[in-house]
Amino acid sequence: MQYDFDYVVIGSGFGGSVSALRLSEKGYKVLVLEKGKWLTARDFPKTNWNLKKWLWLPALRFYGLFKLTFFRHVAVLSGVGVGGGSLVYANTLPVPKAKFFQAETWAHLADWESELAPFYQTALTMMGATPNPRLEAGDLALQQLAKDIGKAEHFQPTNVAVYFGKPGVTEPDPYFNGQGPARTGCNFCGGCMLGCRFNSKNTLDKNYLYFAQKNGARVQAETEVYDVMPLATSNGTHGYRIKWRAATALHETRGEYTTRGVIFAGGVMGTVPLLLQLQRTSLPHLSEKVGAGIRTNSESLIGVTTFDKQKVFSEGVAIGSILHTDEHSHLEPVRYSAGSGVWRLLMSPLVQGRNALVRIANVLGDLI
């Protein structure tokens, strides 16, 4: 049977980019579909007050790289665009602690720490991971805290996917024997999570996705998949028909492709809603476990400000250091570029209360 592509990958973030590269290395004809735009350095905002360039809010025709989704008990931050989450994450590449691999949910399946070790190393190499060479004000404050609580040895610079050449100087590819794109030395502006405007952050379009394209993979941005239908038989043994629509066009644009196989790699916020929709329509045989067992990365974001105007907390990489407070927890100082004060709008006193009205009253009480 003739297909348009051997494999269609939905999503161009970490899962999608890695899948595209490995499939293309095996000689398969691969298509990557990405809902967001293909953004370049000139498209990224200088501060997060430039909401139109920063946020993904199609209803307002904001087609930036950052999506903020609120649920009852959690807010989810995710990336939209070619490169997915690598556009907006803080460059850090930590390997999980031993306890993670021993979690009850999956520990019985394999010795995951040993099983995954070589793959973590491959990913670190591909992403150009290196220790942050420069501690700034926030990092030094965390280092002092580590000393104060008797955990100085548990403080360390982060391992980050950033090119630390000469600041502002563009050099030929330093990672893949000259076969990759040129890179520019980091200037420590703090804008990593707004999209790097200086070609220093090692996003996926500069490694996995870059080489997938060199192998012949095609990337189609601004494309949202809305249906995946089995061909001929309901179990997909004869392939699938992928239906898509333009994600950013003013006029209605739709299309479809046929493929031998589909890789769903749109992250939790992209893949799970799509699979749940397909479970009710085109793919009724999907497991009932779809959507179950989803977890966050258990982060609590706490806003911090200071009256000391002499200290500059915006300089450095997004997360330049880490303090491991115990076997389960750690602290990291996070920064945005100078002038990026949007998160101040979400800052308020930390209060308790049995419902939202009580908590609002307690906040007002603290402020007054």
Rank of each mutant, 00 (worst) to 15 (best):
V8R: 07
V8G: 02
I10F: 01
G11C: 04
F14M: 00
G15P: 13
G16D: 03
S17F: 13
V18M: 05
V18R: 09
A20L: 12
A20W: 03
L21S: 08
L21P: 12
L21A: 09
R22C: 02
R22T: 07
R22L: 11
S24Y: 01
E25Q: 15
Y28H: 14
Y28T: 12
K29V: 06
L31Y: 00
V32G: 01
L33D: 07
E34W: 08
K35H: 09
G36E: 04
G36Q: 00
K37P: 11
W38E: 14
W38I: 09
W38Q: 13
L39Y: 13
L39E: 05
T40I: 05
T40M: 03
A41F: 15
R42K: 08
R42D: 01
R42M: 12
D43W: 09
D43A: 02
F44E: 02
K46W: 12
N48F: 02
N48E: 08
W49P: 03
W49R: 12
W49A: 07
N50D: 08
L51I: 11
L51N: 04
L51S: 06
K53V: 05
W54T: 11
W54S: 06
L55G: 04
W56R: 03
P58F: 14
L60R: 15
L60V: 07
R61I: 03
L65F: 08
F66A: 01
T69E: 14
T69Q: 12
T69M: 11
F70C: 07
F71N: 07
F71D: 05
H73D: 12
V76A: 03
V76R: 15
S78T: 10
G79C: 04
V80R: 15
V80W: 12
V80G: 06
G83M: 09
G83W: 09
G83Y: 13
G84W: 06
G84Y: 08
G84T: 06
G84L: 10
G85P: 11
G85S: 10
S86A: 07
S86L: 11
L87F: 08
V88T: 06
V88P: 01
Y89W: 15
Y89N: 01
A90R: 00
A90C: 05
P94K: 11
P96R: 11
K97I: 10
A98H: 08
F100T: 02
F100M: 05
F101L: 03
F101E: 06
Q102K: 15
Q102P: 01
Q102W: 07
E104N: 02
